[in-house]
Amino acid sequence: LQLFIKTLTGKTSTVEMEPSDTIENLKAKIQDKEGIPPDQQRLIFAGKQLEDGRTLSDYNIQKESTLHLVL
């Protein structure tokens, strides 16, 4: 599924993920695209901070969801 990652600067990146992927996997993919180390990334979806060990489906993240990346 395609996700949009929006940064505080207003920049939006697109990443392709599976519902079974963990937040950790997602942060690794963001690191590949943006060069931001996972330990500096905080991802927010629906007002919640996402935890590394959980999966996208745990948070009911659907295709074309927008996640907010806070550093």
Rank of each mutant, 00 (worst) to 15 (best):
L1N: 04
L1K: 04
L1M: 13
L1C: 04
Q2C: 08
Q2A: 07
Q2Y: 12
Q2R: 15
L3W: 02
L3N: 02
L3D: 01
F4W: 09
F4P: 02
F4S: 06
F4V: 09
I5K: 01
I5E: 01
I5F: 04
I5P: 00
I5G: 00
K6H: 12
K6G: 03
T7K: 07
T7L: 15
L8S: 14
L8N: 12
T9C: 14
T9S: 14
T9R: 11
G10R: 04
G10C: 05
G10T: 03
G10Y: 04
G10F: 04
G10P: 02
K11N: 09
K11A: 10
K11M: 10
T12E: 06
T12L: 13
T12P: 04
T12I: 15
T12C: 11
S13D: 05
S13T: 15
S13Y: 15
S13R: 10
T14H: 08
T14L: 12
T14S: 10
T14M: 14
V15Q: 03
V15F: 14
V15D: 01
E16G: 07
E16R: 11
E16L: 13
M17N: 02
E18Q: 13
E18S: 13
P19L: 10
P19H: 07
S20I: 05
S20Q: 10
S20E: 11
S20N: 13
D21C: 04
D21N: 06
D21P: 00
D21G: 09
D21I: 03
D21K: 03
D21Y: 04
T22Q: 03
T22M: 06
T22Y: 07
I23G: 01
I23N: 00
I23E: 00
I23P: 01
E24Y: 14
E24M: 13
E24D: 09
N25H: 13
N25W: 10
N25I: 12
N25V: 12
N25M: 15
L26P: 01
L26E: 01
K27N: 01
K27L: 03
K27D: 00
A28G: 08
A28V: 11
A28K: 15
A28R: 15
K29W: 11
K29A: 10
K29E: 04
K29I: 10
I30L: 08
I30C: 00
D32K: 13
D32V: 13
D32H: 11
D32P: 02
D32N: 10
K33C: 06
K33T: 12
K33W: 09
K33D: 06
E34L: 15
E34P: 02
E34Q: 11
E34M: 15
E34W: 15
E34F: 15
G35H: 06
G35F: 03
G35Q: 05
G35P: 02
G35T: 03
I36P: 04
I36V: 09
I36H: 10
I36M: 04
I36G: 03
I36F: 11
P38D: 04
P38E: 07
D39G: 12
D39W: 14
Q40L: 11
Q40I: 11
Q40F: 10
Q41I: 13
Q41R: 02
Q41D: 01
R42W: 10
R42G: 05
R42I: 15
L43S: 00
L43M: 03
L43C: 01
I44W: 15
F45L: 05
F45P: 00
F45V: 03
F45S: 02
A46I: 06
A46N: 15
A46D: 13
A46E: 14
G47L: 03
G47R: 04
G47N: 06
G47I: 02
K48F: 10
K48E: 11
Q49P: 10
Q49V: 15
Q49D: 12
E51H: 08
E51G: 04
D52S: 07
D52R: 04
D52F: 04
G53E: 09
G53Y: 10
G53S: 11
G53N: 12
G53T: 09
R54W: 10
R54N: 09
T55E: 03
L56F: 07
S57Y: 08
S57G: 09
D58A: 06
D58F: 15
D58C: 03
Y59H: 03
Y59M: 03
Y59S: 03
Y59G: 00
N60K: 09
N60Q: 08
N60F: 08
N60D: 08
I61T: 02
I61F: 06
I61R: 01
I61H: 02
I61C: 01
Q62M: 11
Q62Y: 09
Q62P: 12
Q62G: 13
K63D: 15
K63P: 15
K63E: 11
K63M: 13
E64Q: 12
E64M: 13
E64A: 12
S65H: 06
S65C: 04
T66W: 08
T66D: 03
T66F: 07
L67Y: 03
L67T: 02
L67D: 00
L67N: 01
H68M: 14
H68L: 15
L69Y: 02
V70L: 13
V70H: 09
V70W: 11
V70R: 09
L71T: 09
L71H: 07
L71K: 07
